[in-house]
Design a protein around this nucleic acid. Sequence first.
DNA 1: TGTATACGTCTACACTGTATACGCGTGAGT
DNA 2: ACTCACGCGTATACAGTGTAGACGTATACA
Lengths: 210, 210
Amino acid sequence: MSGRREEILDAALAIADEHGIGKVSMRALAERVGVTPMALYRHVSDKAELLDGMVGRLLAGLLPPDAGKGRAWHERLAALGYAVRGMARRHPWAAQLLFSRPAVTPDAVRVVDLIYTALVEAGVPDREVPRLERLISTFVIGFAASEASGRFGTGSLDPRGRRGRLPEGELPGHGRLAPWLDLPWDLDTEFEADLDDLLRLIKAVAGGRD
Amino acid sequence: MSGRREEILDAALAIADEHGIGKVSMRALAERVGVTPMALYRHVSDKAELLDGMVGRLLAGLLPPDAGKGRAWHERLAALGYAVRGMARRHPWAAQLLFSRPAVTPDAVRVVDLIYTALVEAGVPDREVPRLERLISTFVIGFAASEASGRFGTGSLDPRGRRGRLPEGELPGHGRLAPWLDLPWDLDTEFEADLDDLLRLIKAVAGGRD
DNA sequence: TGTATACGTCTACACTGTATACGCGTGAGT
DNA sequence: ACTCACGCGTATACAGTGTAGACGTATACA
């Protein structure tokens, strides 16, 4: 019932994708739907709930259709990681929102369950599974949010310029690593390496003590 | 010169801490400083720059006074992690903002340098140091942001209620882990365990291939 | 003395989310 | 067939937002 709500959410998604989340106002959204701003409140209680609905809709598209049946746990986890990052690149506005609300929608719970079963299959002790799920998802969402919001970018200053602002010798680390810092780096391979390390971490927790 | 800017930033910090970041408006800030809203623009070009200045000020208070001299690299890293989390707990509004801008201020660069030198000392190959720095800081900030914004909370539904919304058997992971999910969990010890795992990961990268 | 510069005020504009009150059509119940 | 409720949309209005532009004034230096 009430496919109108979905229509509204889709319109909001379209605005966010085209002009950024900042342009999603009740007035702009209403105009896009072809209706008065106040009419939206019949289908959405709040602007906050509207935003929640938007990320919910994205999460729904995140689930692998076949749940990755037949593939190993580490392949399923990696695929999920790539899916999240891909989503964040397509919808840069969404990453930040993922941090703001717990995973309460049915789709979000399903995603969490995928991670749970993968970790169990990896041999992680039951007691540690929820914690590791939070560790992994926190990193993946954090990476996506950082990428989307420019935290990984150099800002207006390039690395050399940034270092130059401080007295020589106060940044021994930067000094030593200078050759690597000036290189342009590729976020694709970086994310891959990060996931690799995290999978290794999971194996360590699985195979380690008790 | 111009200690007025610092005065303004401090006033903004005070408002954010007392009433939340949402109450930091140019008008409210101006009133607190005892001045007209437009007067603020003599010391701050934007509201965005104001917010940047606020997190910059927090980062300045993050540096260990002695830079942790004499302590092992893993102690220094852990101390930094705890410091970030502590900051996020004292100023819940700040965590989200940390994601939005690259670390360009001198203080931020200094913090990054601390991590660099710790990783180098741990034996991480130079080439991998910047990546691992981003991995660690992304997780730590992500954890802090999640905690501050309620992502780790249960929301309005408790875990049992959340599961109940979906047909039985569709959440095998939740089913198996039910005993652990219903337990209240302690974020202090969780963060500790996470840092432990990350330090182990660093050692693995340091001691591993090439 | 003149002038530049730092600092502040006042007014105004274009927005924002949303409370409140009202109107209109449709479908169910008596 | 008459009423009533309800879903859905509209109109108006209010309090709040960031900030552009024009205008003052006081201090410092030529």
